[in-house]
Design a protein around this nucleic acid. Sequence first.
DNA 1: ATGGACGATGAATACTTATTCATATACTCT
DNA 2: AGAGTATATGAATAAGTATTCATCGTCCAT
Lengths: 202, 202
Amino acid sequence: MTPPTERPTPGQDADGRELLLTAAERLFAEESYTSVTVAKICAQAGMATGTFYAWFESKHELFVELVRSINRDVRRAMAVAIGEATSRNDVERLGFRAFFEVMSHRPGVYRIVREAEFVDPSLFREYYEQIARGYARGVRGFQQSGQVDPALDPEIVAFMYMGVGYFVGMRWAEWTQGRSVPDDVQADVMKVLTRGLARPED
Amino acid sequence: MTPPTERPTPGQDADGRELLLTAAERLFAEESYTSVTVAKICAQAGMATGTFYAWFESKHELFVELVRSINRDVRRAMAVAIGEATSRNDVERLGFRAFFEVMSHRPGVYRIVREAEFVDPSLFREYYEQIARGYARGVRGFQQSGQVDPALDPEIVAFMYMGVGYFVGMRWAEWTQGRSVPDDVQADVMKVLTRGLARPED
DNA sequence: ATGGACGATGAATACTTATTCATATACTCT
DNA sequence: AGAGTATATGAATAAGTATTCATCGTCCAT
């Protein structure tokens, strides 16, 4: 009824929201939205079922926040990895590597993003459209500096990037035991994209 | 209230399974597995709830059969479209076009395939691994005939194809009103893949 | 006619699960 | 110590839904 304090206590005050989000991530990474019950999340977080509603309005609200926080983490990890790099080759290589690394180190985290399509379709679109805008901006820059064929539509290229990352990540970071995308797989992906997007005359 | 007998589907014995599968496809294309109830499927198919279990063991069994039949349909449509074509350019162009056409003409059908990941994960993997094997075989052939860089791993290329088809199809065949992938989008996709997979010396 | 096979029916069952609420605990300030 | 506040508890509630079952129609071979 009374919503919890607007801003979580600044320190590491074992915020109930954080606790629940962490517990939920672990569970949603393995099981579907439907089969992960509020009771299970609370058990995993070490609290009673009713406490859930002191921190979240509903199971759905927690899921939305979880997806948004994953989005932030992935974007930040890629931005940090890319750092000051500016050449297309470096940016692409470091970006893909960071993306695959998140998928490997937080197993199943991307499964959650995928399931968002069925839990909250507009959230799912929001997620990918935001990422696509960022990629398209990058592509446009490379077109201006002559590193990408200017005849290509940046949005199409962005969706191609995402599709490749999604499927290759799913296959090698999630479907295999090693749970990390091997270097030679990344190398082949880079090779195809490097040649595929280059200006024709090169 | 209901006509005397269930209307015999033209040309076939009025198989309850077919009726239910068709009704279910329409519903699953729009709503999630959870929110499509057995009662709704039966209402859509024009039969009473209990009748469902005369034709299927469970809601889950119907879903599995639906995904398998979509898989067959997609593969057949692509095979028919490709026909006798043998050049890489024709095979790719016709294959992608056929795939996007299925997504456009049976709106939401691919949503069902995607949701399979959460309803029955092994079914989902089975689906994509089967398709990947087919694509990889094709890629290997093109490598032998010198139309694809022989240094690339066919399985990696297959997953890249699938990722691109998946995301581009989702964005242009499902997220837009027109609900069909425009020719210039297909052209850009083809351009990138054609160059990206070609042998380096070309 | 008639028996019975094959479906069809839809109310009843059995179970699951999100959410609420009356109550308890812990901690802070005076 | 006592009042006040924030958070925790977990049993009870309410709603939803897959599946079952006793019963009913329709058709066809005898």
